[in-house]
Design a protein around this nucleic acid. Structure first.
Length: 979
RNA sequence: GGGCUUGUAGCUCAGUUGGUUAGAGCGCACCCCUGAUAAGGGUGAGGUCGAAGGUUCGAAUCCUUCCAGGCCCA
């Protein structure tokens, strides 16, 4: 048993005003956030915010559509949270900022997935038995279902992130009204003369039998044969002459040495390209006499293991131009020339040497095998030299009948070894090996892609528009000067891409997409005009783009009058038209979203660029940003956006890219289960998002720690406001209701004036940071304010008055008033980042029990009408010195507990005059403070011999035994009501 | 291979036009409090600023090269 004889003394703890609140320390976000989401949904929060801001200055943000496939990943989390920060901060800043979320629904990945599933389920056989049109319609139906399924899934996941958007009315690129608007943009571009159709070498996926956009390619390493092939010169005498040698000085037919990693393109060889200013050697290598770049001679010889190398003569490349050669295995040149069927303007000769600037001396031989139907550079060279764009490879990757019979009908990959073997046997293979090199692959199928010449629709980026007489490229480059790039280097990045981008290939040969509304006339001419497209657009608006397949040309063109269309071809017979099967590149659809979503829904500026902000990953400089820029400049002549904000990519904690195959990804769903959205959002807010972003579970743990700090700070303030009744909003003590005072009457030297002034500084900084999308600066400033200014300084200082002062002492009420303002203000500043927690705290502050009360319809507060004495900065300097002095005393074995100490503070120039010594003592955590003008350093007093107040634990000099037998200070005696 | 970009304490980041002992938060260590308590406060130790050259009286900051990442192309 313990001795409790002295327990007649009062237990003062019960007389204190200790903190009390319903706002729990443990957030339990995983359970509570979904409840908040439900409550917001119930009160129609999104609509309520829009109503509250109706008529306010608009801020037009436009959401880029994620692809409707799979679960959202960490990149989506970053992207969607940043967008939500933008929308919420603009809204809290009093602007009208709707957020229409969207999805990119068409395209190869979904179609590929659906086809894969059809194969696995056996449905493919049924599909294959259908007629073309019926099959395409069936595939499209399945694709639509697939997209809808993932839109639903992703919507839920995005809502779980507590992003606030019009999820009831998203935009879908497969919706009829969207498709119609995209067609209208296409019509505008036709009208500007920008759309053309031409045979062109494009990336071709054999597996999917479609042309691919640059964006649909991924580069992987691939093993390929690497062969050095000798092409016989057609005229040895001409070669001698080119090299300045005596006629007939050569006893063998000289050859031209080319190098290729695609032997399958050799049947399509039409030219050899050399660099006009590089030197070429005529050399004897192990008995053969061949032409090769001088600089590469020894390297090639070494590669082939040749030791007998002799240079016979040197000539610059330009001297070789025009020399004829024989194809290594096509014997009859005349018949071949007839067989490869060129365009009418393909009048140029073939099988000779041409000059090209792109020839390098890095690989190969300096003589470049050129097949205009099978390469970008080759194509350009072919066009320049007016050769046919010869492409013997069919859509399925097999050769047609124009090639030698020993490879005819074979798949090109199978033909590679056959051709190499044939070359070897005919003595034209100089050397062969295998190389591992980066090679373009189909982004989904991961199968290697080839170049193949096909008829495609293009947007010309070099042709002047009719409206501005400037090319899209020039217009885009000019626009880049006026667009605000965040970060600024985005401008150069985008300019570089614009300067080098080729014409935009618009067409794809697939089912799941928006059909290009072009017809083929019986004479084999395509028919498409701005007016015909607009007529079809109206039909699509009513029926959806599937009608392109199900309706007849006459039905599709019911609203079209050729007589009123100056572009209509003469003698157009609609009944004889055949609908073509190409669909649009999905980038054209998403690139038209400024029109199909923002303009169509009326949420745009009517002057200048329609939208204020596009915000996506920096990959979109080439993707969505660029295609949107091109369509908008083409259709209406202005850029679609005023500001472009880009963020970086997620990498793992070692800075490596995240990929499922490496296994270093994090699942969004499990992060929500483990940490909750507010923690994840806080993490996003603290990121330097313009560069790569390292992500790791440990970073979410760290964010959770910071979150807890914020939460506890709010909790402590709330817990000291339990007995505080605020006056009605916008009113103060003079209204007779509640306990708020007129802040402007607060003494400038009071600690409450100081903290409110500090809050004003913070709030201004945060609002400004938000305005420039610098969420990191904003969140860091809020954190430091909570952690340092509040928790460590102010709240520690005012604890004594909150706990020990009489409940309704003016001093306590004033501090509570300050706390109330701080809570209110902080919740508002935090609301865009941690919407659940800010709302929870705000509702606790207002003791709200209804569902409708929410911080999210509120705005940021203007500066509070308080004034703090400028001498506060002197006080804080003195505080630093005093804390250091206390620490020195403690370290020297003196006073350990600050409440056992007093301080005499210097007051340089009377700086501390007018400050309340109690405020100063509380600020320093000591029992009492005296001010002395004539000292320079704070002096520490050891008060351990003085009596201690049993209630406040202070030794303030007024402590004495009271009527109840306790040792109390004057203040505490009054509070308890004893004398 | 090209364009843009990143590399500062264990971690995440600040470091304005080159100029005194390179800052912050977190983490860590030690201490205090136990009337914010699965909380709170204090103090402290951590960096040859990716590497190597160069310009300069002086460089994390400017130049060159290299190394290691990222995005987009080839």
């Amino acid at each position: 048993m313990t001795d409790s004889t002295s327990t007649s003394k009062p237990n003062y703890k019960k007389t204190l005003n200790l903190p009390k609140t319903s706002f729990p320390m443990k957030a339990n976000l995983v359970q509570n956030e979904p409840a908040s989401i439900k409550r917001w949904e119930k009160i129609g929060l999104y609509d309520r915010i829009q109503e509250a801001r109706a008529g306010s200055e608009p801020y037009h943000f436009h959401d880029g559509p994620p692809y409707a496939n799979g679960s959202i990943h960490l990149g989506h989390l970053l992207n969607k949270c940043l967008k939500d920060f933008v929308v919420r901060t603009k809204s809290m800043a009093g602007m009208a900022c709707p957020y229409i979320p969207g999805w990119d629904c068409h395209g190869l990945p979904i179609e590929h997935k659906v086809m894969t599933e059809a194969i696995e389920s056996g449905k493919m056989k049924k599909l294959e038995s259908l007629e073309d049109d019926a099959r395409r319609t069936a595939i499209r139906r399945d694709c639509q279902k697939y997209a809808e399924k993932f839109i639903k899934l992703q919507t839920g996941q995005m809502q779980r992130l507590m992003t606030l958007a019009d999820y009831a009315h998203p935009y879908l690129t497969m919706a009829p009204e969207y498709e119609a608007a995209a067609l209208d943009v296409f019509a505008d571009m036709i009208e500007q003369g920008l759309v053309y159709r031409k045979l062109k070498a494009v990336h071709w996926s054999i597996a999917n039998q479609t042309a691919l956009a640059e964006a649909e390619l991924e580069y992987y390493d691939r093993k390929d044969p690497s062969v050095f092939v000798e092409f016989d010169a057609a005229d040895a005498r001409a070669v001698e002459a080119a090299f300045g040698m005596q006629p007939e000085s050569l006893d063998r037919t000289p050859t031209f040495m080319i190098w290729t990693t695609t032997p399958w393109t050799l049947p399509a060889n039409l030219l050899i390209a050399v660099h006009p200013r590089h030197n070429y050697a005529l050399a004897e290598i192990d008995g053969t006499v061949t032409v090769i770049a001088e600089e590469l001679l020894s390297k090639v010889a070494a590669t082939a293991g040749a030791d007998n190398v002799r240079t016979l003569s040197i000539a610059p490349g330009e001297r070789l131009v025009g020399l004829k050669y024989r194809h290594p295995f096509i014997e009859d040149e005349a018949a071949h020339k007839a067989a490869i069927r060129g365009d009418s303007d393909a009048s140029g000769d073939i099988l000779h040497i041409v000059a090209a600037e792109y020839v390098t001396l890095e690989d190969g031989t300096g003589l470049v095998h050129t097949a205009p139907g099978h390469g970008q550079d080759d194509y350009n060279t072919g066009v320049t030299n007016k050769t046919p764009i010869y492409c013997p490879v069919q859509a399925d990757g097999t050769y047609d009948e124009t090639v030698p019979d020993w490879v005819r009908g074979k798949l090109i990959w199978d033909a590679n070894p056959i051709i190499v073997k044939h070359l070897d046997e005919s003595g034209r293979l100089f050397h062969k090996l295998e190389i591992n090199h980066s090679y373009p692959h189909d982004w989904r199928g991961k199968s290697p892609v080839i170049f193949r010449a096909t008829e495609q629709w293009f947007v010309d980026v070099n042709k002047p528009t009719k409206r501005d007489d400037r090319s899209l490229r020039d217009l885009a480059l000019e626009a880049s000067d006026t667009i605000d790039f965040i970060p600024a280097w985005g401008r150069n990045r985008m300019r570089g891409m614009l300067e080098s981008r080729p014409d935009w290939c618009l067409s794809r040969q697939r089912s799941w997409g928006l059909p290009i509304p072009a017809f083929m006339t019986p004479s084999g001419e395509p028919f498409v005009t701005a007016a015909s497209v607009r007529a079809i657009s109206e039909v699509v608006r009513k029926n959806g783009s599937g009608c392109w397949i199900t309706l007849s040309p006459a039905e599709l063109l019911a609203g079209y009058d050729a007589k009123k269309d100056p572009e209509a071809p003469a003698g157009l017979d609609i009944s004889s038209l055949r609908a073509m099967n190409d669909i649009f590149d999905v980038w054209f659809e998403s690139g038209s979203s400024w029109a199909a979503v923002m303009r169509q829904r009326g949420t745009v500026h009517t002057e200048g660029s329609p939208v204020d902000l596009y915000l996506e990953g920096s990959d979109q400089h080439r993707g969505w940003f660029q295609v949107s820029l091109l369509t908008c400049l083409g259709a209406i002549g202005v850029p679609p956006y005023r500001t472009l904000l880009t963020h970086g990519f997620m990498v793992d904690k070692d800075g490596r890219k995240m990929s499922k195959s490496i296994g270093n990804t994090l699942e969004v769903d499990s992060l929500m289960q483990q940490f909750g959205a507010d923690v994840a959002r806080w993490w996003v807010a603290t990121l330097a998002y313009e560069n790569d972003i390292k992500a790791d579970v440990s970073f979410f743990e760290t964010a959770g720690e910071s979150y807890r700090k914020l939460r506890n700070t709010l909790r402590f303030m709330l817990s000291n406001l339990d007995d505080f009744e605020p006056s009605p909003p916008g009113k103060d003590a003079s209204c007779g209701q509640g306990m708020c005072m007129n802040l402007s009457t607060m003494s400038p030297t009071s600690i409450d004036a100081w903290i409110l002034d500090q809050f004003n500084v913070l709030a201004k900084k945060v609002r400004e940071a938000y305005a420039r999308f610098d969420f990191r600066t904003a969140s860091t400033a809020i954190f430091n304010f909570c952690n340092d200014t509040l928790s460590s300084v102010y709240l520690a200082a005012v604890k004594d008055r909150l706990y020990c002062d009489r409940l309704d002492s003016p001093r306590r009420r004033q501090t509570q008033n300050a706390l109330w303002e701080l809570c209110d203000g902080l919740c508002r500043l935090l609301a865009p980042i941690v919407p659940h927690t800010a709302d929870e705290a705000y509702r606790a502050l207002l003791k709200a029990t209804d569902d409708a009360t929410t911080i999210h319809v509120k705005e940021f507060l203007p500066n509070l009408p308080v004034e703090a004495a400028t001498a506060w900065q002197d006080v804080l300097r003195v505080r630093d010195d005093a804390m250091a002095a206390l620490e020195r005393v403690r370290a020297a074995g003196g006073v350990e507990n600050p409440l056992d100490a007093g301080l005499t503070l210097p007051s340089p120039g009377g700086a501390l005059n007018g400050f309340d010594p109690v405020d100063l003592a509380d600020l320093l955590g000591v029992s009492r403070v005296a001010i002395k003008a004539d000292i320079t350093e704070p002096e520490v007093l050891d008060l351990r011999t003085e009596p201690r107040c049993e209630r406040s634990w202070k030794r303030d000099g007024t402590v004495k035994e009271r009527s109840d037998g306790g040792m109390l200070s004057d203040r505490d005696a009054e509070a308890v009501g004893v004398s």
